[in-house]
Design a protein around this nucleic acid. Structure first.
Length: 423
RNA sequence: GUGGGUGUAGCUCAGCUGGUUAGAGCACCUGGUUGUGGCCCAGGAGGUCGCCGGUUCAAGUCCGGUCACUCACCCCA
C-alpha cells in the first residue's frame, strides 16, 4: 500500500473526481452571490515578494515568523508562496491604481494559500479561501454589508448552527492605549499564566484574551474591556455597525475578547464559527483594515474584507457522498464489429456536437459488458449498432428505464433524440 | 514545534491468548445464448499484514526503532 510510490506532500490533498463537484458548487454559488453585490474577481500570483507579507501581515505574527514557504530566487530575491490574500490584493490595488477607476473598489477571489502548519482537521498546508475586499470606504454601512454578506452566503449554502461574533478593536491609538492597560493588569498575575501567554505579554498582549485555558479565562475575568478604550469615533462607528446588522436581522454575538491574529485589522472584526467542526471552528473571518493600504505604500485608504475557508465549509456541510458516476450520460453507443465501431465513432461526434452526452466503449468489450457500462453510467438510451442494423441502414434504440427498443432509420437519429430530450 | 491515537486488498473492516497456502462485505473484471443492462448465481484479479530490526522452532499477532496518516495544542480560514 505504501510501497515506493510518490505520495502527495504532507498537508496537501487531491480533490478527486467524486468530490470536485462539491467544490464547483461552492465556487459557483459564491460567484453568483457576490456578483449581486457588485464585486469583481481578482486573481493574484501564487507567490509574491516576501516583504509584502512581512510588512502587510506583520513581522511578529505567527504566519510570518514560522508558517511561510519562503525561498531565495536565483537573483537573490526572497519570495513566498502566499499565506494570506488581503496583502496581495491590496498590493495589486496599489500597483494598478485601481482606486482611480471608482472611489470604492470591490474585489473578490477564490484561491489557494499555503501555510506550513501541522495539519489537522480543517487545516492543511495548501488550502482554499474565497473572500472579498472593499477598498475605499470608512463608513459603517460597508462593514455591515460585508458582515451580512458573509453570514447570508454561508447560511444560503445550507449551513446551520452558525455563530457570528463581532467586535471592535478600535483604531491604532485606542489599541495602543488599551494594550498598555492590559499589560498593567496582567503583570501582577504573570506567574500564574501559561508560558505561551507570558511570552505573548511581550509580543502581542491582546492575544492573551484569546486563551482557551479555563484558569486563565478565570484570571482574566476582570481584565479591562477594550470597548472602554475606544475613541468616540470608534464607538460611534461600531454602534452604527451593530444597528445596521439589527436592521438587517442578522443574528450576532458581541465578543469583546475576540482579537484577530493579523496586525492589519482595526475597528470592526468578525468571525463566523460552526459547531460542527472540531478545534478549528472558524469558517470565516474578516474585518476592517484602515491603515494597510497606506502601510503598503498607497494613499491612506480605508478598507474592509473577509475570507472563508473552503475545506472547513465542506466539513461543516457534512459528509459529501462520494460517488464515482455522477456525470450525466444521455446515450451510450454499443458497437460490435469494426464497421460498427467506425460508425459509432462518427455518430458520437455528431451527437456530441448537437449537445448530447455520449458514452461509448473503447475496450472492445462484449455487448453484455457494454450494457453493464451503460447501466452504470445511468444512460437514458443505448444505441445499438449491430450487423443487422448496419445492413438496413438502421440503428436500434433502447430506452434503458423501460427496456423498450425499436429500430429507427440512421438518418433520423438526431431528430429522434432531439425530440426525446426535447431540445 | 509539543502530546495522544491509528497503520491488514481500491474502500470499510475481521483475524481469540503467536501456530499450516491471510479473510469478509462493497467496488472492479469475466461468464451464466449466438448481439442486451439492473436483481441473482458462478468464477477471477487484487495484499512482501506501513517499513527496518529483535525475541521465538514459528510473528499480521510480542518488543524496539522508524515512517506515514490522524486528532488535539499553538495559530488561523
Amino acid at each position: 500500500m505504501t510501497k515506493n510510490i510518490i505520495r502527495s506532500v504532507k498537508g496537501t490533498k487531491d480533490i478527486l473526481p467524486g468530490e470536485s463537484s462539491e467544490w464547483q458548487k461552492i465556487e459557483k454559488s459564491f460567484r453568483n452571490f457576490i456578483h449581486r453585490y457588485g464585486y469583481r474577481e481578482i486573481r493574484t500570483p501564487v507567490f509574491e515578494k516576501t516583504e509584502l507579507f512581512a510588512r502587510g501581515v506583520g513581522e511578529g505574527t505567527d504566519i510570518v515568523t514560522k508558517e511561510m514557504y519562503t525561498w531565495e530566487d536565483r537573483n537573490g530575491d526572497s519570495l513566498t508562496l502566499k499565506p494570506e490574500l488581503t496583502a496581495p490584493v491590496v498590493r495589486a490595488y496599489i500597483q494598478h491604481n485601481l482606486g482611480t477607476e471608482l472611489p470604492l473598489t470591490k474585489l473578490y477571489y477564490f484561491d489557494s494559500l499555503f501555510r506550513r502548519e501541522r495539519p489537522q482537521k480543517g487545516r492543511q498546508r495548501q488550502f482554499h479561501q474565497f473572500g472579498i475586499e472593499a477598498i475605499g470606504s470608512p463608513f459603517p454601512e460597508l462593514d455591515a454589508e460585508i458582515i451580512s454578506a458573509a453570514y447570508l452566503f454561508l447560511s444560503d449554502l445550507g449551513l446551520s448552527k452558525l455563530k457570528l461574533k463581532i467586535n471592535s478593536i478600535g483604531s491604532n491609538i485606542a489599541r495602543e492605549m488599551y494594550s498598555r492597560e492590559l499589560v498593567n493588569f496582567i503583570k501582577p498575575l504573570r506567574n500564574k499564566l501559561s508560558k505561551i501567554s507570558q511570552k505573548r505579554l511581550e509580543t502581542n498582549p491582546l492575544r492573551i484574551l484569546d486563551t482557551k485555558i479555563p484558569e486563565e479565562i478565570d484570571l482574566l475575568k476582570n481584565a479591562p474591556d477594550i470597548t472602554k478604550y475606544l475613541t468616540n469615533e470608534d464607538q460611534e462607528h461600531f454602534q452604527d455597525v451593530v444597528k445596521l446588522l439589527e436592521i438587517m436581522e442578522i443574528p450576532f454575538i458581541l465578543d469583546s475578547r475576540m482579537v484577530r491574529g493579523l496586525d492589519y485589522y482595526s475597528r470592526t472584526t468578525f468571525e463566523i464559527t460552526s459547531d460542527s467542526l472540531g478545534g478549528q471552528d472558524a469558517l470565516c473571518g474578516g474585518g476592517r483594515y484602515d491603515s494597510l493600504v497606506e502601510s503598503l505604500g498607497g494613499k491612506p485608504t480605508p478598507a474592509m474584507g473577509f475570507a472563508a475557508g473552503v475545506e472547513r465549509i465542506l466539513i461543516a456541510l457534512g459528509e459529501t457522498q462520494i460517488s464515482n458516476y455522477t456525470n450525466r450520460t444521455d446515450i451510450f453507443i454499443i458497437t460490435m464489429s469494426k464497421d460498427s465501431l467506425e460508425m459509432g465513432i462518427s455518430l458520437s461526434n455528431i451527437l456530441r456536437k448537437e449537445g448530447f452526452y455520449i458514452g461509448m466503449d473503447s475496450l472492445r468489450r462484449s455487448v453484455k459488458s457494454q450494457f453493464r457500462e451503460a447501466n452504470k453510467l445511468r444512460a437514458q438510451y443505448a444505441l445499438i449498432l449491430g450487423e443487422e442494423e448496419m445492413k438496413q441502414n438502421k440503428v436500434t434504440v433502447k430506452q434503458m428505464s423501460s427496456s423498450d427498443q425499436s429500430m429507427i432509420d440512421i438518418n433520423s437519429i438526431s431528430s429522434f433524440f432531439k425530440k426525446s430530450f426535447s431540445l
